[in-house]
Amino acid sequence: MPSPSAPASPARKVAVVGAALADCGRVDEATPYSLHAQAARRALADSGLDKSVIDGFASAGLGTLAPIEVAEYLGLRPTWVDSTSVGGSTWEVMAAHAADAIAAGRANAVLLVYGSTARADIKAKRRTSNLSFGARGPLQFEVPYGHSLIAKYAMAARRHMHEYGTTLEQLAEVAVQARANAAHNPDAMYRDPITVDDVLSGPMIADPFTKLHCCIRSDGGAAVLLVAEEYVADCAKDPVWVLGAGEHVSHTTMSEWDDFTVSPAAVSGRIAFERAGVRAQDVDIAEIYDAFTYMTLVTLEDLGFCAKGEGGAFVEKGRLTLTGDLPVNTDGGGLSAQHPGMRGLFLLVEAVRQLRGEAGERQVHKAGGRLPELAVASGTGGWFCSSGTVVLGRG
């Protein structure tokens, strides 16, 4: 095994060799730090590598000097760090940065880790939700109009409905199929089946979103370990290769968003697919950030799985379920499985598990019983403010 500080040749291949979740759902006794540590230990154990190989660390959302404070808690002294924080897409963007650093020889093994007690904190009244997201800077001009985060997503959904005839029933299908996938995930918070009528008849949160159009709130943590190709032979399991990644930022002020029906995934996805040398049509499974049903629908369009405006029809007829044409959010997603805050890292963990054939009852199989070959994880941050897309493959 090479020394963590050994010089390396450029353009090395990069693989995910460790992926794990901390305890998720209702974890009242945990702290964000303990969830970080639990996820990190499990990911390292999953890789079969020793902690001493880690020379890169990426974390965001916790600590006064993130990621330094979390690295210290984990007993790490990295020589490469990243604390990029761009909302839910943070982890796909960090994975892209880590892969670039490893390929260029600036790091050899980078740990990405996240943990949050978002649900327990609310229950214990340790904090309250921030629905305005800023009364200073450019955002201050929207605050008087009540532009909460969900209202911004709701406006975008309404625009898509107006522009392309997308229906409430089609948006509801996203939630119904996410729950159908969650039914096969023993760790999902919500597994009981729901119907389109259940979604439509729920309490209104922000028109057109009823409660079941919105993600759940949970506790939880996740971690992945990316390494240079030289380390793969010493790992416990087959690698999942990072084939391509892209990132893009759009806006924070709604008036600066050119088109409510186009997310920044239209750019990050194009870049990621071009770098991977594949097309959307080649992808077997997709893990897509789904804080709200509209996010899934519009991201599918923008990644190229269907044409702009055709997302409503695309998500019908069970296409997103484990046995559908394009299984999406195979663990149940943020709508049913878990959503502790910035959920992008959970997308990467689930994609890795599916490509390895480790997803248990929810494992996707293609024709002839073969495992999926290609997966895409695409995270969205803010209110379609940022996007990170990563293409992963077994081959």
Rank of each mutant, 00 (worst) to 15 (best):
G369P: 11
A351E: 12
P340W: 03
V298S: 08
A367D: 14
D290E: 13
V349C: 08
L326F: 07
T296R: 00
A375K: 04
P340L: 05
C306T: 14
E310K: 10
F292K: 05
T321C: 13
G368M: 09
H339Y: 15
E350S: 06
Q281V: 06
G309A: 11
T299V: 15
R319W: 04
A280S: 09
Q281E: 15
G341T: 04
L320A: 06
H365G: 01
A307H: 10
G334T: 14
R319Q: 02
D325V: 05
A307S: 09
L297N: 05
D290V: 08
P372C: 08
V315N: 05
L326E: 13
L303Y: 00
A313D: 11
V283Y: 06
N329W: 03
V352M: 07
N329M: 02
A291W: 07
V376D: 02
R343W: 02
R356W: 10
E361K: 14
R279N: 15
D302K: 08
V298W: 07
L374K: 08
G304V: 03
P340G: 07
R370P: 06
L297S: 07
R353K: 15
M342H: 15
A291D: 10
K366V: 13
K366M: 12
A291P: 03
A280P: 06
V349Q: 10
G344F: 03
F314D: 03
D290T: 03
V376G: 00
R370Y: 10
L348I: 11
E301V: 01
L322I: 15
G312Q: 05
D282G: 13
G324L: 02
T330M: 12
T299P: 03
Y289G: 10
G334Q: 11
R319T: 15
E301P: 02
G360T: 03
H365A: 02
F305D: 02
H365R: 15
G304L: 09
E301G: 01
F314I: 00
L335I: 14
S336F: 01
D331W: 11
D284M: 08
H339V: 12
D282T: 09
V315E: 08
H365C: 10
D331M: 08
L326C: 09
L322T: 15
G311E: 03
V349F: 04
D290S: 14
V352Q: 12
R279H: 15
G332W: 09
Q354I: 13
A313Y: 11
A351V: 01
A359T: 13
L371R: 15
A337C: 14
V364C: 07
D290M: 08
A351G: 07
N329G: 06
N329I: 04
T293C: 09
V328I: 07
G312T: 10
V352G: 08
L348H: 02
L335V: 00
Y289P: 00
V364S: 04
G324D: 07
K317T: 01
S336N: 07
L320V: 04
D302C: 14
L303Q: 04
L297W: 04
R319S: 12
V298G: 00
L347R: 07
L300P: 01
G324F: 01
R343N: 15
Q338F: 10
S336Q: 06
G332Q: 01
G368R: 02
M295H: 11
G357R: 12
A367M: 06
K308V: 09
R319L: 13
V328Q: 09
Q363N: 10
